Amino acid sequence: MDRSLVRYATKRIMQIPPLLLGISILTFLIFYLSPVNPTVAYLGLVTVQKMSPEDLDRVEEQLGLNQPAHVRYIGWLERIAHGDWGYSHIKKRPVLDVIMERFPATLLLTITGYSLSALLGMMLGVISSVRAGSRIDSILNGLNYIIYSTPTFLLALLAMLVFSVWLGWLPSSRMLSVNAPTSSWLLMQDRIHHLILPASVLAVGHMAVFYTYIRSSIIEAMQEDYIITARAKGLNEVEVVLGHAIRNSLLPFITQMGLSVPLLIGGSVVVESIFAWPGIGKLTYDAALRADYMLLMGITLFSSLLVILGNLLADMACALTDPRVRYD
């Protein structure tokens, strides 16, 4: 591996702790300034109204809400450094345990949706760029604009209506059937059956971004001198596109894949909530409804770490894909 790439990777990894520190400060301030009282969310408004001021002070002391903001933040940060991400008063469990329990479901959904969106976006983008200006290109562009402007929640509801309610082909919610089979093979089939609809909605919702980037990159590449040289050497159009144009168009495509990680994580909140998929997105929605601030802060920090790592991997992939890329 190139030493410059190793130095760049090391430099980026060293930037992760201060970046997470800044994110943790913003995260804490957002939830600290929230108008919702955590005590009310924890006990309920009726219970709080019936409590005496002394009892309410004791509860706030137990929750650590009577301390100054900087003391609460430093204490929270010290506990995270020691592996204690706090305690969810709604789930009655440690925050990190709750997140890690839900993470595999979100990982399965996002990787499947991410792979499908990248694959479909690249395939359709190549077809559209090769046939630029044709009827096929116009149709694909029109569909792309419609998909891009349609909210994810609307796509999810339409897909559920068509494929679950009208046609009855796919289940409308959950990760497994209520009467899930005990056999490992049948259990995997049941999980895939439940995965198809939410993963497809997540993929279609983000496919338009990949389609736009790969189409514009290939159209631009087809005007370059090396394409003219390849054609002059007698290569057919398939060899020119696959061997030269696509290869030199991968750099912005890979970069966009890294930038799309936060969009996928954000989209998974909507998709998981609609399809009752037991992942981090659904957990975020439930925690927001119950004002479980400690759990929400842990999810935000954990998601931020995933976004940072996703962008780092995208940069590494760019350098490995295109030898012209060098980092100082």
Rank of each mutant, 00 (worst) to 15 (best):
W85Y: 13
F275G: 02
S164Y: 15
S177C: 04
G64M: 11
L176T: 14
D57G: 11
Q49H: 00
G133H: 09
D137V: 02
A180T: 08
I214K: 12
T39F: 08
K50V: 06
A291L: 03
F302N: 00
D55R: 15
S184D: 03
L312I: 15
M294G: 10
V36R: 10
L21K: 03
K282G: 07
L56W: 01
R79M: 01
L43H: 12
G75V: 03
P17I: 02
A287G: 00
L263I: 13
V126P: 06
V95C: 10
T300E: 05
S184M: 13
L45G: 10
S134N: 06
S173H: 11
L167N: 13
V240A: 04
S173T: 12
T112P: 01
V165R: 09
G279S: 05
V165K: 07
E239S: 03
Y145L: 09
L264E: 09
D2Y: 03
A208H: 11
Q49V: 02
V48A: 15
K11Y: 15
L305T: 11
E60I: 14
S273F: 04
R326M: 01
H89L: 11
I218G: 13
N66E: 03
S217M: 06
F153I: 09
S34I: 09
A276L: 10
S200C: 08
E61M: 14
G310H: 06
R191T: 15
V59W: 02
G83H: 07
W277C: 06
V71H: 15
N236Y: 00
L124T: 13
D328V: 08
R324C: 02
S24G: 11
G168E: 14
I228C: 09
A232W: 04
D322A: 02
R12M: 05
T229M: 13
T10G: 07
A319W: 01
S128Y: 14
V71S: 09
V269L: 07
I30T: 05
I90E: 09
S34N: 14
M122N: 05
Y73A: 08
A291T: 04
I25N: 05
P181F: 06
Y32T: 10
F253Y: 13
Y87E: 08
A291S: 00
L309K: 06
S149D: 04
P53G: 12
W277G: 02
S88V: 10
H82C: 02
I280F: 02
L158W: 14
I139R: 06
T255Q: 05
V165G: 05
A276Y: 01
S184Q: 12
G234D: 11
W169Y: 10
L21S: 01
H70M: 14
P171C: 12
S34Q: 08
S117P: 10
G281M: 01
D190F: 00
Q256R: 13
V46T: 14
I254T: 05
E220G: 15
R247Q: 12
D97T: 15
L29M: 06
P17T: 00
